[in-house]
């Protein structure tokens, strides 16, 4: 049976003391966003674009609070210039990214960014951890939070599309 990976991520976030969760909605993150919204220890911050998340986490860390960003792979394309601030200032950064444009994709417009998500992150000095199956998701998130906040690191955990299991427009709407 597949582990309940959104609940496991939520547990990792609370254990690490994350208090601010910025997100742009994604069908794959629906449950985790709901868990964070329902958690009184966390401030859920819906964003109009992923770029805003970089300002948010940087300001939160200036103020002494830990945060994470949730988004889908297409949103990584919106981050490129502002990731420069993360590198120059060495702000800790953890992004949990659900992948599109992989196995089971049905929308061709998702493919170009999905195919280049890891490369774009790597180019902008964000370390990439690939969670290819549900069993590995929580471990990668745990490790990313530790590295980010103990070493001023920037990390992204990519959750494979086959973990999310969306294979049609109807699946996406039914999440």
């Amino acid at each position: 049976m597949q582990p309940d990976w959104p609940a496991e991520i939520h547990r990792e976030l609370t254990a690490a003391g994350v208090t601010i969760v910025g997100s742009v909605p994604d069908a794959g993150h629906k449950r985790l966003i709901e868990l964070c919204q329902a958690d009184k220890r966390m401030r859920a911050v819906p964003l109009t674009t992923e770029e805003e998340g970089i300002g948010l986490v940087s300001g939160a860390w200036l103020g002494g609070q830990k945060s994470v960003l949730l988004m889908q792979s297409s949103g990584v394309g919106n981050l490129v210039n502002v990731l420069g601030m993360i590198k120059v200032c060495r702000f800790p950064l953890v992004m949990i990214i659900t992948m599109r444009g992989e196995q089971g994709e049905f929308n061709p417009w998702q493919v170009p960014m999905g195919e280049n998500t890891a490369r774009v992150l790597d180019t902008m000095s964000v370390a990439v951890r690939q969670a290819g199956d549900a069993q590995t998701v929580a471990g990668h998130v745990h490790a990313a939070l530790g590295l980010a906040y103990k070493t001023n690191g920037a990390l992204a955990v990519l959750i494979a599309q086959r973990v999310i299991g969306i294979k049609s427009f109807q699946d996406q709407r039914n999440q």
Binding site: E51, L56, G63
Partner: peptide
Amino acid sequence: NFPMWGAMGQAAMMGLGLAIAQ
């Protein structure tokens, strides 16, 4: 003071993160 030298468009969001944290 946190004067930004880049990340154009993110000043208000940095203020929001800071305001929530403090």
